[in-house]
Computed example of a mutant assay.
Amino acid sequence: MSEKIFFAGTGNMGGAILRGLLKAGTNPSTIFFFDPSDKAAAEVTALGCVRVASFAEGINKAEVTFLCVKPQIFKLVSAEWKAAAAAEKTSKTFVSIMAGVTRKALIEVLGEKNQILRVMPNLPLTVGKGSVGLATDGVTEETLAIAEKIFCNIGVTCRVAESLMDAVTGLSGSAPAYVFEFIEGLTRGGVKAGLTRDVALKLALGTIEGSVELVKQSGKSPSDLCAMVCSPAGTTIAGINALEEGAFRSTLIKAVVAGTDRSKELGK
């Protein structure tokens, strides 16, 4: 990356993106960050990145700014951000990972002269296997390409209209928690059936990893692959029947919709 990048916040998501850039060979001296926590800042400084004293200093030094604070914090810092952005004479690029904070709300604070891109990453970014939704509304192809170049180091990207960002949040933003619950459920099922917890967890993780890779490589739909496992009157169809009795798929659909609705509420 030739651009200088500033991170406003270096928590789980901001830190994952930052570390992904470093793994991809970005010179740490071109990465600036602001974090009020001295302890957290010391960890990032140890990587060679440059700590700045304020948001204003950060956006002044960089071409691309990642807004990585929690959405609930946005209103608390918006006045400071607005003053800092107004003082800048040149156009800047801002990339926001704040769930539910609309591009319109960001423009009101950061100004219309700047490129403002909303993205929704998820927690697996911290291990380089994340999913990121990019809202295409009102941003240039150059800005989208810069974001994709950054995120390709730590996950996959999908371009969507901003109107679908709440759905991205409800699905990929929240779904890692659903997957963790699924893993725990499989593990407990194995324990109930007589396996040790370590063996059950190992089998569950290996099965999930292999199943994901099979979907990617086979070209078949999840439904088709499910049918391949379900032999007539066999063990798998008995298990599938138990899942259907518990409204498994319907519950997952409701979870994604609930997360989407909550994201919309956060944006109001």
Rank of each mutant, 00 (worst) to 15 (best):
1 M>S: 09
11 G>K: 01
11 G>A: 04
12 N>T: 07
14 G>H: 02
15 G>S: 02
21 L>C: 12
25 G>E: 08
26 T>P: 02
26 T>E: 05
26 T>G: 00
30 T>Y: 04
30 T>G: 10
31 I>G: 03
32 F>N: 04
35 D>N: 14
36 P>I: 11
46 A>D: 03
47 L>M: 08
48 G>A: 08
48 G>R: 13
49 C>K: 09
53 A>I: 14
61 K>I: 11
64 V>K: 03
64 V>F: 11
69 V>D: 08
71 P>L: 03
72 Q>F: 05
73 I>Y: 11
77 V>Y: 12
77 V>T: 03
85 A>E: 07
86 A>D: 08
90 T>K: 14
93 T>F: 14
96 S>A: 11
98 M>V: 12
99 A>C: 11
102 T>Q: 03
102 T>L: 10
102 T>W: 02
105 A>H: 15
106 L>C: 01
109 V>H: 09
112 E>I: 08
112 E>A: 15
112 E>W: 07
113 K>W: 14
116 I>C: 13
118 R>Q: 07
120 M>E: 05
121 P>V: 08
123 L>C: 03
128 G>C: 13
132 V>N: 12
133 G>Y: 00
136 T>F: 03
138 G>M: 06
138 G>I: 02
143 T>I: 03
144 L>R: 04
154 I>V: 12
158 C>Y: 08
164 L>G: 05
165 M>S: 12
167 A>W: 07
174 S>Y: 14
174 S>I: 05
175 A>H: 14
177 A>G: 10
178 Y>T: 01
179 V>Y: 14
180 F>A: 08
187 T>S: 00
190 G>S: 04
195 L>A: 15
195 L>G: 07
196 T>L: 10
202 K>F: 04
202 K>M: 05
202 K>C: 03
211 S>F: 01
213 E>W: 02
220 K>T: 09
221 S>E: 09
225 L>D: 08
226 C>I: 09
226 C>K: 15
233 A>D: 10
242 A>S: 09
247 A>D: 05
248 F>Q: 01
248 F>S: 02
248 F>P: 01
248 F>K: 00
249 R>A: 13
251 T>F: 03
254 K>T: 03
254 K>W: 06
255 A>F: 04
257 V>Q: 15
262 R>T: 11
263 S>V: 04
263 S>M: 05
266 L>Q: 15
